[in-house]
Nucleic acid binder design. Structure first.
Lengths: 132, 132
DNA sequence: TTGCTCCTCACGTCACGTGAGGTGGC
DNA sequence: TTGCTCCTCACGTCACGTGAGGTGGC
């Protein structure tokens, strides 16, 4: 993976970002102070927002306008969402492991003879095995 | 499992519940209206709070007082917490399944000879097996 | 009767969004 | 210069907790 993809590249100045998100520029400054969004900065300290930041702003807007959540709540909700997504990925990874293991286990049980037969042929030519 | 355990039994009337949670009784009524807590009711519609309800009230108090979250936020946070706990239980169940399967798989691989040896002795007495 | 319960309505406080006012660099 | 950026301060609105006021059943 490369470090930053297109979505992560900070490109919009605050005025454009605010317009894209349908918000007041001052609101974006408030959100940054409360650490809800972390735009990049130019050397001259002008804020630069990425597409990901814009998406985040829209999500915050949904929580505050539609759901009526305040900013303290938004912060915690976003953290929980992140933890949920991480855990969801963990579950998916484990699901793969479980089905893979169960497939192997079934394989191992269905065909033990085949494997053993191979182990038998490594005996020296002409030798006999006596059954009890 | 029995349906209700000790924690779930609604026993405290609103005045006692409010005292235990360190809140105003009226606040408890507000929380019920917003569906943050669902106390039981007597036939005469007097609210009855369980220990679980009291714990829930204390959790809400922590979110509102310490974290500054409003009630809309509390509602969503509690839902997310529940989903996280459910998912956490799923992960634990899967972990058990993974380790159990991997143990069996290792067992199956470490001792194929033992199992095959058994399969060999079911041959009729005195019969011979010729190696290639 | 006392002390609880139920409810509704009103007020004070605080969070937050909007906007004004003044600055500085492309 | 124009239009952006940066910042701080102030005001209006709304959510929510507190409490009053009036009711009814152990």
């Amino acid at each position: 993976m490369s470090g930053k993809n297109r979505e992560d590249r900070p490109v919009y100045m605050i005025g454009v970002a605010a317009q894209l998100a349908g918000m007041h520029p001052q609101t974006l400054r408030i959100y940054e102070r409360k650490k809800l969004v972390r735009p990049g900065r130019t050397a001259k300290s002008t804020r630069l927002y990425s597409q990901k930041d814009i998406d985040c702003l829209k999500y915050i807007q949904d929580l505050t306008q539609t759901e009526g959540v305040n900013l303290a709540g938004v912060k915690i909700i976003m953290e929980l969402q992140k933890r949920l997504e991480d855990l969801q990925r963990t579950v998916e990874g484990m699901e793969k492991r479980v089905t893979e293991n169960e497939r192997r286990l079934a394989e191992e049980r269905a065909a033990p003879t085949r494997r053993y037969a191979y182990e038998l042929v490594v005996l020296p030519k002409g030798e006999l095995v006596k059954a009890r």
